[in-house]
Amino acid sequence: MKLKRLMWVVIIVGVLVGLFLLPGGAKSQVDVAKEFELHPLIRLPKLGPIDLSVTKAVVYLWLTTAVIVVGALAVSRILKAKPGRFQSFMEMLYGIAHDGIAGSVMRVGVATWFPYIGSVFVFILVSNAIGLLPLPLGEHHQLSFYAVTGNLNVTITLALFTFVFTHYAGIRQKGAWGYVKGWMLPSAPPVMRELIFVMHIVSEFFRLVSLSVRLFANMLAGHAILAVFFTMALVFQSYLIASVLQAGSVVLFLFEIFIAFIQAFIFAILSAVYVSGALEEEH
């Protein structure tokens, strides 16, 4: 009950703060796309082509990792046989990751690959959740929403982890040649076999694309819609329309909480499906 009230307070505050998230305050012409542009907050020297400058996205990544590290260390310190509310919550998350995601789709290798599947679930969930908090990291240090998972570079890196681990798992299980041979249907006629092999390779790369783009586009679209609702209130310059739009943005915000969870869930469960597909005998 108390938690529920707290949640409502957070939502209402978040939505009200949304009114002030716009760059330059009450500009009537707002470019939503600007919200997702990255400007270096701390400039660092370039290492060849790699620009390690600390941008908004990097700060969000740090925050995500910090939250995870603090949470993990805290929960490992206070572990008790009779769990408190915090430990129960952590155990619930763990249960979703272990039984709901890894356990439900992987028939083999849960013990080996759960650390990765669970980590990717927690990482995406935490970064999505942080994306729903207004933080003063905008261009002019105003409060704003930004999700680091709404950046294709981040999601494609995460998808690459899944991609690499999938093939590593397959190769470790069956040997390099045995794993690649598994992609060819031995029963197919000679030319078709090679064609299927090529199609399989293409589909492996499309998995990479679909994993990364799904997460990226969902988070980006969600934040863009939220930003559009917030900016429209300014565009119309009317308290009546603004209040209606704020009601709409509350609904959208709730929906975004759901999306944040579902996207983490889907990313992790698809990773589990891919890894277990590489591990299984018949392919």
Binding site: A33, G100, S104, V105, S210, V213, R214, F216, A217, N218, L220, A221, I262, F265, I266, I269, L270, V273
Partner: peptide
């Protein structure tokens, strides 16, 4: 439980198609 899990996998796969369109429109815009 099983149906819901598989439903989410399916939703993820189908939804990706709409998101490709979204990305294409983003590319066209920006």
């Amino acid at each position: 439980g099983d149906i819901r899990t598989n439903m989410f996998i399916g939703i993820g796969v189908i939804e990706a198609l709409a998101l490709y369109a979204f990305v294409i429109s983003l590319i066209l815009l920006f």
